[in-house]
Design a protein around this nucleic acid. Structure first.
Lengths: 248, 248
DNA sequence: AACACTGGTTCAAATAATGAACCGACTAGG
DNA sequence: CCTAGTCGGTTCATTATTTGAACCAGTGTT
């Protein structure tokens, strides 16, 4: 792996649950020597992508990331525009709703509004979702150009649960259904016990750039509920698309 | 410079005004060979810190940055908590107000609320402010431990305008005045024609972590106005500090 | 047609990254 | 009090990665 890749993989060790990590721990988890890890951390710290807590000497993500992210967001205000709509949809459905952006062949979770119910689906910001096996992914593929779908189905499809669709034919049918309805439905394709309704968000050129999804415990969703969530998800996705392209 | 440093310096070429840049341009400005720049960009793109617009082939900051920044913000919700207070202060004073975080010996501008007046001070997110020469910096030093101030004054102080304080003695006096008043005042120390009032924001341990500043055209500020801005700035800074430490 | 750009690629040469061994400081257990 | 096992951090000969001049192919301009 390139040196830069190693440095970035250090950044990626930090999560919502573990926002501060010590040197030895970082090196171990990244599979790097302690000396190497430290040199990389110093290089990142020089540009403020990493900070070191002076007391504990542990490392954490730096302010430079906030700065770069703000530059990106100003140019491409996906999360900023979508967040209130996601929140509204979460309140309306009473379920967890998450927003993802397409990046490098997968969907990257950028924002989550959790259900207030005790029995709810938890999704983490930063989670990477595959296109097959999640409602978000099916919705994304259904809004993509045919050639993009074909290219994706060329590659082998990993099974995440016993319910994951791994046959291209099955996937094509699910995509067609999602395309005709405007939203996708998927149960337990990525994680056991999770039911999801997905809808694609389109950019200015009509191509999909991301998705939103309503995620519920399977036990709470019947066909009528799913249909209701689908309608609401489509409305929310269209609203975000419109705001992105300046139509609202 | 380390390879990692070069890669990050590529990221830093993107600004609010120029969020997409082509390969040759990037290489030229970073002082790198085209081949080197491209290899670094590919490494960054593999981790989604950079994206390439498929049509124009130009590069832009990637979604991975938004993701990392959200992880950081969740752990350290400085901007999220401060932004509404900054906005309120901007509306109250009618002037541009900006928020900075201390990082690696300087203040990094994280958030800005611009004055709605035609004649206003413009500050950019991402701008790095020196501790001497800005009201923010003086306020920060006034809230810092004496040893930290001493260490900073050891180093030579660069002059940015003919008004910049470069003598440690002058700076000590300004710091003492700011400490007694609770806010700092500085005119044209960093940029000609700009008057600023700064106040420090404190973390849970009582140490300063950043500042806010009210920036106006010098022509609009007399002593009474400055005093009013000072009181308002101190109130806002205290409110942010309190929210950060969970006291509100 | 010639020119000046662009993004992208190649491979021998030069440079930067690497990691085992080391340090001093700290903590837990005996 | 001692030992063992951590921790963060440093050193420097060895090694592997990075580097960049020269090279495509494509796209406008003159």
């Amino acid at each position: 792996m390139s040196t830069v890749g190693k440095a970035v993989s250090l950044l990626e060790l930090f999560t919502l649950h573990e926002p501060e990590i010590g040197l030895s721990d970082l090196a171990r988890r990244a599979g790097l020597d302690k000396a190497t890890a430290r040199r990389l951390l110093m290089a990142l710290a020089a540009h403020r992508l990493i900070e070191q807590e002076p007391r504990s000497r542990r490392y954490r993500l730096g302010a430079g990331l906030s700065r770069l992210a703000r530059i990106r967001d100003a140019h491409f205000p996906f999360v900023r525009l979508a967040a209130p709509v996601i929140r509204e949809l979460s309140l309306e459905t009473g379920e967890t709703v998450h927003l993802s952006e397409f990046s490098a062949g997968a969907l990257l979770t950028l924002h989550v509004e959790l259900s207030t119910k005790a029995n709810r689906v938890n999704v983490d910001v930063g989670q990477v979702l595959p296109l097959h096996g999640t409602a978000s992914g099916i919705a994304f593929l259904a809004a993509s150009r045919l050639e993009a779908v074909g290219a994706y189905l060329e590659k082998p499809l990993q099974a995440f649960t016993s319910f994951t669709m791994t046959q291209p034919d099955d996937l094509v049918k699910a995509i067609a259904l999602a395309a005709s309805r405007g939203y996708s439905r998927s149960a337990q394709g990525y994680e056991e016990g999770v039911h999801s309704i997905g809808a694609a968000i389109l950019g200015a050129d009509g191509q999909p750039i991301g998705t939103l999804a309503v995620a519920s415990p399977v036990s709470r969703v019947d066909d009528a509920t799913a249909a209701g969530q689908g309608e609401a998800a489509v409305r929310a996705a269209r609203l975000i698309s419109a705001r992105l392209t300046g139509e609202a």
